[in-house]
């Protein structure tokens, strides 16, 4: 995934896969996700959610992630999404398996493109699926991808 490090206050989209792992004790994924979420709370970044992402989070929420979301909200660091961005993806160009993976997580892409173009996820399938067609590659490269296990908090910046 992209390894660009950016600076300044940004709004991140955090996939529910991170929420689920943070509430578990699956070494080393869980601790890496908890460290990542704690880092977001501690520095100036915010998270942005749309109703679909929020519903996914609710489904996978643990005590840890619930408290994290409450603290984020109390600090004005949890944003509701604005109008979704047009992705420019031409889904008919993608093989069926890739198209299904993209459709499943399209809300992450739309929300990220409308915010600061950063997605935090443990699931590589979306990233790989976008690489299956030129319109997807453009979108993939426009976004900064964070994998808390692989990248840690290195790309978060300050």
């Amino acid at each position: 995934m992209s390894s660009t490090s950016r600076r300044g206050k940004r709004a991140l989209v955090v996939d529910a896969s991170v929420a689920r792992a943070a509430g578990e004790t699956d070494h080393p994924r869980s601790k890496a996700c908890r460290d990542f979420l704690t880092a977001i709370l501690g520095i100036c970044h915010r998270v942005v959610m749309n109703p679909t992402i929020r519903e996914e989070w609710n489904r996978h929420e643990s005590r840890f992630t619930r408290k994290w979301r409450v603290s984020m909200a109390a600090r004005h660091k949890a944003l509701n999404d604005g109008p979704a961005a047009l992705t420019g993806l031409r889904l008919e160009q993608f093989p069926e398996s890739a198209r299904k993976a993209i459709e499943k997580d399209l809300c992450l892409i739309e929300t990220a493109l409308a915010a600061d173009k950063e997605i935090v996820t443990l699931d590589r399938r979306l990233y790989d699926a976008l690489g299956e067609a030129p319109s997807g590659e453009r979108v993939r490269d426009e976004i900064t991808w964070h994998d808390p296990v692989v990248d840690g908090t290195a790309k978060l910046g300050r």
Binding site: T25, D26, H27, S30, F64, K67, S71, A73, A74, R75
Partner: peptide, 28 residues
């Protein structure tokens, strides 16, 4: 919305730290 923005510390963050420490210990 009842949010207070940039306050030095939130009580619930202490609880969050406690949850985190417990899960980290179980994981370890």
């Amino acid at each position: 919305s009842g949010a207070y923005g940039d306050w030095p510390e939130d009580f619930s963050e202490t609880e969050l730290d406690a949850e985190r420490a417990y899960l980290d210990a179980v994981e370890q």
